[in-house]
Design a protein around this nucleic acid. Structure first.
Length: 902
RNA sequence: GGGCUCGUAGUUCAGCGGUUAGAACGCGCGGUUCACAUCCGCGAAGUCGCUGGUUCGAUUCCAGCCGAGCCCACCA
């Protein structure tokens, strides 16, 4: 049951609490190495489930494969070190066997381009190498970058199970991709067809619709007259079309008009002559034409335009290809044949001009498709490619989200998902590059048969139809996303039914940026449903983009965006905290050095809270008191102790709630707020007096140890290194009753009992403290000077807290009448014996009274409003009534106070 | 053309049918308190984009408008 792996001792070089400031560099590497060596990141059951409960279901996440094309960027740091590791660590602490599976992606064209660029630096080129030589070059490069990326993941603290590391191009993965393709082929989900595709002249490959981007450009728009093929009756209008690509005129096969366009209705079926080509082509009617553009007549060029290709399909028109893969004009272009489509464009414009058919030339602002990888303008071409038939795969994937088997967080992305999936088009999966999964298809040179091997069969050597041995392997490779779509099941052993696949599929959460919802998430859902019959995860959490701007990240280096430099300078904990803090799901964020600095300050605050507690334990010889960090103190406790304990339990409950609701930004804010404003600013100050008296120190010591222990557990998912550093030292002095060797596998706390009345009472104490401090500052009394303060009005409730108020304000507290500056806190009169400025005080009390009266008026209106008492929930009514009474009392006190001053 | 989102303090952003609308940074003032100057204390600062509607009650829900942005799509 329990994992008794190879727990080694914690590293000896953990930072000692004698250090005033937390030094991440001193602990991070050693702690990570220890965690990893101890097997904490394996999906083991680290402790028996609680009495009467079954073992928890595993928590499974896949690392969104970073491309092996460079270093990690801030977006990776946010996803991996922020949300994902946070979830993994939290679930692990909750006792769920947690598998977070690492890997990387071969990144097809992106990686190939990078390596080609590297080659170019050395004066070499892909074309100068054989395919084998080039691939060897790719692998060399992989061998260099992969370990680098894995090291960076460790630096971020990611609790990945490195024993299950995968790479999309591992021979094993190649086999699974091959089987997947063969099955898709046999089931008809993939097919080979001549269709129009996006072609990149630079990269010399096709690409999918998703990889097409659009940019706005201004190009000349040519208006060209196409002469009628037959003499037409008088009054027949000229047929004029507008085009930005006159060089494709020679590939025109028709003119299309909108069916409802009355200008052209009578001429549908007539023919015109294509200029220069002198070919007769018909006028056809098709819905795709926008009658408001130009004359409403569209030249139809199925060989070089997406829309035209579809019109051609509908009307059975031929395809003429006049541009080749290099961008040169083919012999089919007739007189335009020859190198360079741009030269052909000029040539064509010239010829049209000379023949008087070019009526007009004007600039047009329009958007043109480009290859998003390199920015080259799309050259749509008709080519034989492999396609995946998407609508049948999309249907069950839509249903899975629709019926809640998968939930997307934040919910707005469900709409985006539906919008895309419901309009999905077939996916071109073949690419004309070398780096990638080869397509397991051979073609017979003798009879054109397509030969596909058996799933685990050898490469075919003979044609299955004509027995020829003249077979040629498809030279193309598969789109990168074809293999990553299988990731959640292929890494667990599919198609074999392995123990891992049984245990860890379906997984739990898929966390990634919203920008790859379609590229990856949607496709994983479709492939998971197809191959496994079950969704790959129940929740998709999408984060926004990290933008760096506005503020300078570093004076010396310009804008630092490399997360590793930030880890170096600020520590992984600070970077993780800064990235997650105050950001909501799916929202883009602006990252700044200020955020990072604040996170480091918070880490340091936590460090010093830890130091304070550890020193106190040492000084008091915690050993002899047998303090147990995980045991909530009971028995004789002061108000302050009972208050911070109650607040601690409240924080435990709230942190759990926020994490369950995927509200990570609020979770970090909660932790920071509690540690800084409540634990450090209030309770630590209150504990100091007690700690000075050894005989009275025990309750405070037990409380401090317990609260620190809770805080470290709560903060561990987002700040693993500093919390572990402190926990190891805390537990040495106050060993937990439930023995545990590391915070990584320590139980997530369950919220204990709260005392709501005491919490409320203490918030009054804090308000009174602030009022006294304010009075002292106003009067210019030095903090070291002890003064008197008197509490009156509704002050009885504060008797038990007089000591706390005194300690926090350096003031003697008395009850009843007093002298000095006066103020009213809620319903308590506060007089601080300091010199006062009568006029100033009078003015302030006047302002307070004005505010109190308007607040009272608001309360009165609300409580008396018709329908309020009947319609509002009873607890709201009760609260508003209480608030009304309190405000009445406050107004009365302020009036009395003012009257006294007069 | 279709879909989505955002507009809250000087800045970056949380929040939300009933709170005195919050945080961090920044700003002003004061502090050598033995955990922390990567600190402590006090303070100033918001008509929650505009206009209507729903509601006992709207910063929060709905509609329109103004402003900013994102995604999808076959604008010649």
């Amino acid at each position: 049951m329990a994992n008794v792996a190879t727990w080694t001792q914690p590293p000896s070089v953990v930072l000692d609490f004698a250090e005033k400031n937390f030094d991440p560099a001193a602990v991070e590497r050693a702690l990570y190495a220890w965690w990893e060596a101890s097997g904490f990141f394996a999906p083991s059951l680290f402790r028996a489930p609680p009495e009467g409960e079954d073992a928890r279901a595993p928590f499974v996440m896949m690392l969104p494969l970073p491309n092996v094309s460079g270093d990690l960027h801030l977006g990776h740091a946010l996803g991996f070190g922020g949300y994902e590791d946070l979830m993994a660590r939290w679930h692990r602490m909750r006792g769920e066997p947690t598998l977070w599976l690492p890997g990387s992606d071969h990144a097809g064209i992106i990686a190939q381009l990078v390596v080609e660029k590297e080659l170019a630096k050395k004066g070499a080129s892909r074309q100068g190498l054989s395919r084998e030589e080039f691939l060897a070059e790719m692998w060399r490069w992989m061998d260099h970058y992969q370990p680098r990326i894995y090291e960076q993941l460790r630096r971020l603290g990611c609790s990945l199970d490195w024993t299950r590391l995968h790479f999309t191009m591992d021979p094993d993965m190649q086999r699974r991709v091959r089987i997947h393709f063969i099955r898709l082929f046999r089931s008809g989900h993939v097919y080979r067809a001549d269709r129009i595709v996006h072609w990149c002249l630079t990269c010399q490959t096709t690409y999918s619709d998703l990889e097409a981007a659009h940019v706005e450009r201004t190009d000349p728009l040519y208006r060209v007259r196409y002469p009628w093929a037959e003499p037409m009756p008088g009054g027949t209008p000229d047929l004029v079309v507008a085009t930005t690509r006159p060089e494709t005129i020679v590939a025109d096969v028709a003119i299309a008009v909108h069916p409802a366009d009355e200008r052209w209705a009578a001429l549908v079926g007539k023919e015109v002559l294509v200029p220069v080509a002198e070919r007769r082509v018909p006028i056809i009617a098709d819905d795709a034409v926008d009658p408001s553009f130009g004359t409403g007549a569209l030249k139809v060029t199925p060989g070089h335009d997406q829309t035209d290709f579809e019109i051609g399909q509908r009307h059975g028109l031929p395809v003429i290809t006049v541009i080749d893969r290099q961008g040169n004009m083919t012999p089919a272009a007739g007189v335009l044949a020859g190198p360079g489509r741009n030269a052909a464009r000029a040539e064509m414009a010239d010829r049209l001009r000379r023949s008087g058919l070019l009526l007009k030339e004007e600039p047009l602002v329009h958007s043109v498709g480009v290859h998003e990888r390199c920015g080259t303008i799309d050259e749509p071409l008709v080519m034989k490619q492999w396609w995946m038939r998407m609508p049948p795969l999309a249907a069950p994937a839509i249903a899975a989200v629709r019926d809640g088997r998968i939930r997307i967080v934040p919910g707005k992305f469900e709409k985006v998902y539906f919008n895309w999936m419901e309009n999905i088009r077939d996916w071109t999966i073949s690419r004309q590059i070398w780096w990638g999964h080869s397509i397991p298809v051979w073609y017979c040179r003798d009879c054109d048969e397509v030969v596909v091997p058996d799933e685990d069969g050898p490469d075919p050597v003979r044609c299955t139809r004509c027995r020829s041995d003249d077979l040629v392997h498809d030279p193309d490779v598969l789109d990168t996303w074809f293999s990553s779509a299988l990731w959640p099941h292929s890494t667990l052993g599919w198609p074999e039914r392995t123990p891992d696949l049984d245990r860890f599929y379906p997984g739990s959460v898929l966390e990634t940026g919203y920008d790859i919802l379609f590229f990856w998430v949607a496709r994983m859902i479709m492939m998971g449903l197809l191959n496994m019959g079950e969704v790959p995860f129940h929740t998709v959490y999408l984060h926004g983009l990290v933008r760096v701007g506005g503020e300078k990240m570093s004076k010396s280096r310009g804008n630092v965006t490399a997360p590793m430099e930030m880890v170096e300078e600020y520590g992984a904990d600070a970077l993780r905290f800064a990235l997650v803090s105050g950001v909501s799901a799916g929202a883009d964020q602006r990252f700044s050095e200020g955020r990072l600095q604040n996170a480091r300050y918070f880490a340091n605050k936590l460090w010093n809270v830890g130091r304070f507690v550890l020193r106190a334990l040492t000084a008091a010889d915690g050993g002899s008191l047998a303090v147990r960090a995980d045991v909530r103190p009971s028995g004789e406790l002061g108000d302050a102790e009972r208050w911070i304990l109650s607040r601690t339990e409240a924080t435990v409950a709230e942190a759990s709630r926020l994490l369950e609701a995927y509200l990570f930004g609020e979770y970090t804010a909660l932790i920071q707020q509690f540690v800084w404003s409540e634990l450090a600013d209030v309770y630590l100050e209150l504990a100091k007096p007690a700690l000075r008296v050894p005989s009275h120190a025990a309750p405070a010591l037990r409380t401090l140890a317990y609260v620190l222990d809770r805080v470290l557990r709560l903060a561990h998912p987002i700040m693993p290194f500093i919390t572990e550093t402190l926990a190891l030292q805390l537990w040495r002095q106050a060993p937990p009753a439930a023995e545990v060797s590391s915070l990584v596998i320590a139980p997530w706390p369950a919220a204990g009992e709260r005392d709501a009345a005491l919490e409320d009472h203490f918030s009054l104490v804090v308000d009174v403290v602030r009022a006294i401090r304010h009075a002292r500052q106003q009067a210019g009394v030095a903090p070291s000077v002890r003064v008197h303060a008197a509490l009156a009005g509704d002050a009885k409730q504060l008797r038990s807290s007089a000591g706390a108020i005194a300690a926090l304000t350096n003031t003697e507290i008395g009850f009843g009448e007093g002298e000095g500056a006066a103020t009213v806190v809620r319903t308590v009169e506060v007089r601080v014996a300091v010199p006062r400025d009568q006029d100033q005080e009078h003015a302030r009390l006047g302002r307070d009274l004005f505010e109190a009266r308007s607040a009272l008026a608001r309360s009165r209106d609300l409580v008396a409003r018709p329908g309020f008492a009947e319609n509002a929930p009873s607890d709201v009514v009760a609260r508003e009534r209480a608030r009304f009474e309190e405000r009445e009392e406050r107004v009365r006190l302020l009036e009395a106070e003012l009257a006294r001053g007069d």
